[in-house]
Structures are given as C-alpha cells and as structure tokens.
Amino acid sequence: MPPPELRIDLPPEPGEFRSMSVRTSYVSFPTAATPSLVVAGRLNTITTEDAAPTPGVVICHGSDGVDGRGQFHAEALNAAGIATLEIDMWAARGALRGAAARPRSPVETLPDAFAARAFLAAQPEVDPSRIGVMGFSWGGVVTLLAATAEAQPASGAEPGFAAHVALYPVCWAYEVAPGLSLANLTGAPVLIQTGDADAYDDPDGLDQLLSRLPPTSRSLIRGITHAGAGHGFDRDLPEQTINDPFAHKGKGGPVRMAFHPQAAKAAREAAVGFFSETLGA
C-alpha cells in the first residue's frame, strides 16, 4: 500500500500585494503509475484577503529534473494569484537525471501529472475547476499529451486540466512518432512556446506541427516562437550541451542549452497571461 499523503508546511511569506500571501508546502502523494509510485512536490498556495479559492497550475520538469525552471515560472504565477505544484517525476523512480536515465516515454509519467492535479484540487485554497498544467521539454510533452482525450484517467472520476502551456515540447514528433498525436484534444486551450534555434526541431517546427493537425485541434492551440532561443531558453544555469536521441528531428545528436533572458521573460509573461485569461486569475 502506498503511504498516505504527506504535507509539510512552512510559514506564509509576505506576498507582493497586501491582500495576498504565499504558503510553501513540501508534499507527496501516490500516483496510478505502474508500479504504484509516491511522487513529491513543492506546493505554493495563495491566501487571499477574502479567502476565495484561487486557480492552480501543475508544473512538470524536463529531462534534467527539477532545476529552477519551475520556480522561475511559479514565482510569477504566484504573484498573479495562481497556486502552483511542481512535481519531481524522477525521484520516485530512482532515476538519475538526463536523457539516458529517464523513462522510455512521457506516457509513463502522465499518471504523475493527473495525480498532482487531484492533489491540488483537494487543497482548500484551490478551486478544483480551475487547474492548468505546464511543462518544459519532457514535461512539455506530458503537458500536451494531458490535453488529449485518450490520456484522460480511465475512471473518469477526475476532470481534465482546464488549460495547458508547453515549452519547447519537441514539435516534430507529433503525428509522426507512435503514440504522440494531438488530433483528438479535450477542448481545453493550449499554448505552445518554442525557440527558432532549438536543435530538436526546424526553426519553423511549431508551424509545421500546426499544419499537420486537423482544424479542430488547431483552433484550440496558440503558438509563440521566440527568435534566437534554443532548447531550455528559460533555464538560468550555465550553458551545457547534451545528447538526446530525439534531437534533430529524431536523428539524435547534440543539443545546446543556453539561457536566453529576453525569451525567458517573454515566455513567463505569456504563460502568466494565458493562465490568467483561461483560469480566471
């Protein structure tokens, strides 16, 4: 049997506005993965002056694990009055970080995202009908797959996510690689953000993806391509080069990851604006 849900709270921190404060909790919860897992995460809830429930967003990391990108976006979302839950999909699996150690497919980590949604929905500070999801690279793939009808939990007991923001989610693979299709979406709005210097895709990889989709899917997706930005452009860490079999449109090879301050700022603002609009922050 998985252990019960765990929540460890830290005292509230002063918010950016007089009517709001942010409470950080370190939590864990079981998922429906096979075998069953217990996933940990960092939960930031918002306490408002009128105690009204706020929207929430689940944040899914990339292949390098929890590395600061989630916190970069969480801080801005929290300041906009949106709770966040950044999960650690690797620690539960005993996985090392990086492309060589991750699971075989993002599909294997979809239960983590849906379990995180259920945990976030159970928090009294959060409105369960206004929960979105965002992710980077691997987490971006999870974010997009969570928008498909096929990925919804079989029980049907839990609603799906209300909005999705995917950053550089390897655009070439959809409608090409087996099991990766966006042809049948749930109807929730989607924002995809990419860079035109990303070694996983062509410079116009996002446009190519949208052109492969049926009109019903295209109507739900907004796209932004940031000029000069490569993979992991919002990762404020020293530049590094990785090797990934999905890079260069599936041919594999090196990928340069370098922080792009202008693209990072623009992407964060776009994500906050999108979630504020679609979740009613």
Results as ranks from 00 to 15, higher is better:
residue 90 W to Y: 13
residue 94 G to S: 11
residue 148 T to C: 09
residue 102 R to A: 15
residue 79 A to N: 12
residue 190 V to S: 11
residue 132 G to W: 03
residue 113 A to F: 03
residue 196 D to G: 02
residue 93 R to H: 12
residue 68 G to Y: 14
residue 194 T to D: 09
residue 61 H to K: 07
residue 173 A to T: 02
residue 160 G to Q: 11
residue 164 H to G: 01
residue 87 I to V: 15
residue 99 A to Q: 07
residue 168 Y to N: 02
residue 173 A to W: 00
residue 114 F to Y: 15
residue 138 W to F: 15
residue 174 Y to F: 15
residue 120 L to A: 02
residue 65 G to R: 04
residue 163 A to E: 10
residue 146 A to N: 09
residue 63 S to C: 15
residue 166 A to C: 10
residue 151 A to Q: 04
residue 172 W to Y: 14
residue 80 A to Q: 03
residue 173 A to P: 01
residue 138 W to E: 10
residue 146 A to W: 10
residue 74 A to N: 09
residue 65 G to Q: 07
residue 84 T to L: 01
residue 161 F to W: 11
residue 70 G to K: 04
residue 112 D to F: 02
residue 145 L to V: 07
residue 155 S to G: 15
residue 142 V to Q: 12
residue 175 E to F: 13
residue 121 A to S: 07
residue 112 D to V: 01
residue 189 P to E: 09
residue 87 I to D: 06
residue 184 N to R: 12
residue 162 A to N: 03
residue 98 G to T: 05
residue 188 A to V: 12
residue 170 V to W: 01
residue 141 V to G: 07
residue 121 A to R: 04
residue 78 N to A: 15
residue 176 V to A: 10
residue 117 R to D: 02
residue 104 R to P: 00
residue 113 A to L: 05
residue 162 A to D: 03
residue 153 P to G: 06
residue 162 A to C: 03
residue 76 A to L: 08
residue 176 V to D: 06
residue 105 S to K: 11
residue 130 R to I: 10
residue 133 V to R: 11
residue 89 M to Y: 12
residue 119 F to W: 12
residue 100 A to M: 12
residue 57 V to R: 05
residue 86 E to I: 02
residue 89 M to G: 08
residue 188 A to W: 08
residue 182 L to W: 08
residue 113 A to N: 04
residue 67 D to T: 04
residue 89 M to T: 14
residue 97 R to V: 13
residue 188 A to F: 08
residue 177 A to D: 09
residue 178 P to I: 00
residue 194 T to C: 15
residue 187 G to E: 12
residue 57 V to E: 08
residue 196 D to N: 13
residue 171 C to V: 14
residue 156 G to Q: 05
residue 115 A to E: 04
residue 58 V to G: 02
residue 124 P to H: 11
residue 64 D to L: 14
residue 191 L to K: 08
residue 76 A to E: 08
residue 111 P to Q: 14
residue 169 P to G: 08
residue 143 T to E: 03
residue 181 S to D: 05
residue 108 E to M: 13
residue 147 A to Y: 12
residue 152 Q to I: 06
residue 63 S to K: 00
residue 114 F to H: 15
residue 90 W to C: 07
residue 57 V to T: 05
residue 125 E to H: 10
residue 112 D to T: 01
residue 139 G to D: 10
residue 110 L to D: 08
residue 144 L to W: 12
residue 152 Q to S: 09
residue 119 F to H: 11
residue 149 A to R: 15
residue 146 A to Q: 08
residue 100 A to Q: 14
residue 126 V to T: 09
residue 168 Y to H: 14
residue 105 S to V: 14
residue 83 A to F: 01
residue 141 V to M: 15
residue 176 V to H: 06
residue 196 D to M: 04
residue 100 A to H: 09
residue 62 G to L: 05
residue 81 G to E: 00
residue 174 Y to Q: 02
residue 128 P to K: 01
residue 116 A to W: 04
residue 167 L to R: 02
residue 137 S to L: 03
residue 121 A to T: 00
residue 130 R to F: 11
residue 82 I to C: 03
residue 171 C to I: 04
residue 75 E to Y: 10
residue 109 T to K: 01
residue 132 G to E: 06
residue 159 P to H: 00
residue 120 L to T: 05
residue 178 P to H: 07
residue 59 I to K: 06
residue 103 P to L: 13
residue 158 E to F: 03
residue 106 P to R: 12
residue 159 P to E: 01
residue 192 I to D: 02
residue 124 P to G: 03
residue 141 V to H: 02
residue 72 F to S: 12
residue 189 P to M: 10
residue 124 P to K: 12
residue 168 Y to V: 05
